[in-house]
Design a protein around this nucleic acid. Structure first.
Length: 297
DNA sequence: AAGTGAACCTGAAGGC
DNA sequence: TGCCTTCAGGTTCACT
């Protein structure tokens, strides 16, 4: 389920259980996800205290005591859920669904929370595009997985001038450049489509066309930067997007998918007042792009 | 160097 | 009902 807003929602869901908790025992139910799990993965985790949970782009990070950090990526289908130890787990989920799902429960953390409760934190990932790796906590930013990442699309760092700089000289379409994690880290297929619609910019437009002569502000780049920040902030606020009933750590659903303006809306009328266009689906770099050819130029 | 497409893996949905 | 094809929120690798 994971673009940046979904990963941030997961982090916030895990935080109250994991921060200050002791990992009593960890289980790796298979040797690998996308990559092999680290050697002696469960042994290294047993007994550790979780100092804090963080996020960088779409990566979750956990600082553990004793000089160890865990880096986790949810891939395409990864999710965490929290269960009471010995209890029946998430309420409101059909048993049939749960037992089917359990085949993809790949990693289980048995923890004692700061409040002394026993919980299970279960990582489920049918497609296994996710992964977990160890790093040195003081050197997270230099870890190969994180070192090359671009700017976070939240906060003040992302403005029109920065975008114009990043785009300068690039012939590739806006869609592919915005998906490039080395430039902006955390956007994915949904939020790129949504941000471009909000900015009224075509996903096919050459990214370099938003750059201007040095020192001259680009109106379009400024509009795009604002749209990106707005849509990411709104999605985090809504608890992310729940496609295909993907749930948050507590079993509840994010609801930002109801705010999609173009994503997965091929053939529908463009929601921009007075536009009158129809949402189209095209394929760019092997991924679906949804946009309105009438108002996105 | 930059840009595109295939590969990784499983499940859901739609067509026939 | 069942079989087949297509598609899915991500990343990386190979190729032009």
């Amino acid at each position: 389920m994971p673009e940046l807003p979904e990963v941030e929602t997961v982090r916030r869901g895990l935080q109250p259980v994991l921060e200050g908790a002791r990992i009593v025992r960890a289980e790796a139910r298979r040797p690998n996800l996308r990559f092999p799990l680290p050697d002696r993965f469960a042994e290294h985790l047993a007994g550790r205290l979780v100092a804090s949970l963080g996020r960088r782009a779409k990566y979750l990070t956990a600082h553990l005591d004793g000089g160890l950090a865990l880096i986790c990526h949810l891939g395409m289908s990864g999710s965490f859920r929290i269960e009471d130890e010995g209890g029946s787990g998430v309420p409101g989920i059909f048993h049939r669904e749960r037992s089917k799902d359990a085949a993809h429960d790949h990693v289980v953390f048995h923890v004692e929370t700061a409040a002394g409760e026993l919980k299970r934190v279960v990582y489920n990932d049918p497609r296994r595009f996710g992964f977990m790796l160890f790093a040195e906590p003081g050197r997270l930013a230099e870890h190969p997985m994180l070192a090359g990442l671009g700017v976070e699309p939240t906060g003040n760092a992302l403005d029109g001038d920065l975008l114009a700089d990043l785009f300068r000289g690039r012939a590739a379409p806006l869609k592919s450049v915005l998906m490039d994690q080395r430039l902006i880290a955390g956007l994915g297929n949904i939020y790129v489509c949504e941000a471009l619609w909000r900015a009224g910019l075509s996903p096919r437009r050459a990214a370099g066309s938003l750059a201007t002569a040095a020192g001259k502000p680009s109106v379009r780049a400024g509009r795009l930067a604002q749209s990106i920040r707005d849509v990411i902030a709104a999605a985090i606020e809504a608890g992310g997007s729940s496609l295909r009933d993907h749930m948050q750590t507590d079993g509840s659903l994010g609801y930002f998918q109801h705010s999609f303006r173009v994503y997965d809306r091929e053939g529908e009328a463009c929601p921009r007042p007075g536009c009158g266009g129809t949402i189209e689906r095209i394929v760019q770099n092997g991924r679906s792009t949804f946009y309105c050819p009438a108002c996105q130029r």
